[in-house]
């Protein structure tokens, strides 16, 4: 246990040199590497922070734009809803008007159909009544009734208008046109002469007149001269009533 001074001094020198070597070869390079990496990490972190900040800024701008878009969209939606509401109101009004027109049309058609049906019923009733009356009058028609009708016929001739009498006279004087008088029963000679006299007085016709019996006319007298027919028969009156009902004329 003694100190060798050479060793002592060499150890001091060795250690000082070793400190210098280690500082130069190990400590400084390693610390520099760590510092460089930390600086790089700090720069990276700063860059990341800047990017994050930029991203946050972008996000805020994006959110702001989204909010603006949402507001604009809401405005457009409200405008569209208002337009839709107006259009719906217009369409509803149009539809209601169309429905009202359809209802009116249907009501009119229904009324028309009712009137038609009523008219058909009336016609049917009149026809049935006419048939019934015809059958009834055929049963009860007599020469006396026919004479009475012929009297009415002869009595009504002078009451005809002048123009009509003139037209009848023209038809009677038309050459080749037969003048026929039909009755349900045999017309008495006296009645025939009365008819010739009246035609001669009123129309100036004194030509040939053919008298026929037609039971179908039930009773009365019918004069035919060309297109003219002067009817005073029960069949003609019944037909007149039936046709008057068919043409909508009131029959009272």
């Amino acid at each position: 246990m003694e100190v060798d001074w050479t060793t002592f001094l060499l150890e001091i020198a060795n250690f000082i040199i070793l400190v210098w070597i280690m500082n130069r070869l190990l400590y400084n390079p390693v610390m520099n590497a760590i510092t460089t990496r930390q600086d790089s990490l700090a720069r990276t972190a700063a860059e990341a922070e800047r990017l994050r900040s930029d991203a946050a800024d972008l996000e805020n701008r994006y959110r702001s734009r989204l909010t603006e878009w949402a507001r604009e969209k809401e405005g457009l939606r409200q405008e569209m809803l208002a337009e839709l509401s107006a259009e719906r109101t217009r369409l509803e009004a149009s539809l209601l008007e169309s429905l009202e027109q359809d209802r009116d049309k249907a009501r009119t058609m229904r009324e028309q159909e009712q009137q038609d049906r009523l008219r058909e019923l009336e016609e049917a009733a009149l026809a049935q009544g006419s048939r019934f009356v015809t059958r009834l009058l055929q049963e009860v028609a007599t020469p006396e009734l026919e004479e009475r009708l012929q009297d009415l016929f002869l009595a009504s001739l002078p009451t005809l208008p002048e123009e009509r009498l003139r037209a009848i006279a023209d038809a009677l004087r038309e050459p080749g046109v037969p003048v026929r008088v039909a009755s349900a029963f045999v017309c008495p000679e006296l009645r025939r002469m009365e008819l010739r006299r009246r035609l001669a007085e009123l129309c100036g016709y004194e030509g040939r007149i053919e008298f026929d019996e037609e039971p179908a006319i039930i009773a009365g007298m019918q004069l035919r001269a060309g297109p003219w027919i002067m009817d005073a028969t029960l069949r003609g009156e019944l037909s007149f009533f039936a046709e008057a009902a068919h043409h909508g004329d009131a029959v009272v």
């Binding site: 060798d4 050479t6 060793t7 060499l10 150890e11 060795n14 040199i17 070793l18 070597i21 280690m22 070869l25 190990l26 390079p29 390693v30």
Partner: peptide, 26 residues
């Protein structure tokens, strides 16, 4: 004039080893 003892030689060896390792790391 210097007498080099085993201690100094070993110290040199250790210094050499530390130098080489440090250089290798560097």
């Amino acid at each position: 004039p210097l007498d080099i003892t085993r201690t100094v030689v070993t110290t040199w060896g250790i210094m050499l080893l530390m130098t080489i390792v440090s250089w290798f790391i560097r």
